[in-house]
Simulated scan of single mutants.
Amino acid sequence: MPVEMTASEALGLWQNVTLEQVRRDEPDLTLRQLSILLHVYMVPPPHTVRGLAATLGVTKPVITRALDTMGAMTLIDRVRDDRDRRNVVIKRTLAGALYLEKFGDLVIGEGRKLNV
């Protein structure tokens, strides 16, 4: 079932989601970090630094900095590719999956408020 919204309603939903996310005791991710995390969890693996950089249209060092931060939050993990030691493979973690599940629930909840 498609959701019909005006641009103002969509922006209001995004504002409510981001405001509520900031209020919660959850990691505070940048849009870039959130985009990377969503990509890693919603697109089938494998995921590499090189591949993420190409997908987001940024350099590998930009991805590495974002992954450093998310790794410290235990939202992702990185391991060397056994087949090609030059590649770093990005792995999902339980903490990352739980973070996105809560984030998804937040979006659903804020979206339902708009329909009431």
Rank of each mutant, 00 (worst) to 15 (best):
D77G: 15
I76R: 02
P45Y: 03
G12M: 08
L31G: 11
D82Q: 12
A54L: 12
I36R: 02
W14M: 12
K102N: 12
T69I: 09
N87C: 04
L100N: 06
G109N: 13
R32I: 08
D68T: 14
Q33T: 04
M70Q: 02
T48V: 00
L29H: 03
E9C: 04
K91I: 05
E110V: 02
V107Q: 05
M5P: 05
R50N: 06
L75C: 04
R83K: 13
T6R: 10
R78N: 08
S35N: 14
E101T: 13
L75H: 00
F103Q: 03
S8I: 06
V88T: 15
A7F: 11
V40H: 03
K91P: 05
T74F: 14
T48N: 02
L11S: 06
P61V: 00
Q15D: 14
L98A: 11
L13A: 02
E20F: 06
P27W: 00
A97N: 09
P46M: 03
V116S: 15
V40Y: 01
L52N: 00
L52V: 00
R85N: 07
D84W: 06
N115D: 09
L13S: 03
Q15W: 12
P45G: 14
E101V: 12
V49R: 08
D81W: 07
V89F: 05
H47L: 01
L52E: 01
L52D: 00
K102F: 11
L67I: 02
R65G: 02
P44R: 14
N16T: 06
L19C: 06
E4A: 12
A97M: 10
N87T: 05
L94G: 07
L106Q: 04
R85I: 05
E26I: 07
R83M: 09
H39T: 15
P61D: 00
I76L: 09
G51T: 04
E20M: 10
I36Q: 00
L34T: 03
V43H: 10
L100A: 05
P44K: 12
V58D: 02
L114F: 01
L19D: 12
I36D: 00
P61A: 01
D28H: 12
H39L: 10
D105L: 13
A95R: 13
P61W: 00
T74L: 10
L94F: 11
G71V: 07
M1K: 10
A10D: 03
G104K: 08
V43D: 09
V116E: 15
S8F: 10
T64V: 12
T59C: 05
T30F: 10
V88Q: 09
E20C: 07
Y99L: 05
W14I: 11
L38P: 04
L11C: 07
P2A: 01
K91W: 04
P46C: 03
M5I: 08
T59M: 07
P45T: 01
G96R: 01
R112H: 10
T6G: 14
L56S: 06
I108P: 03
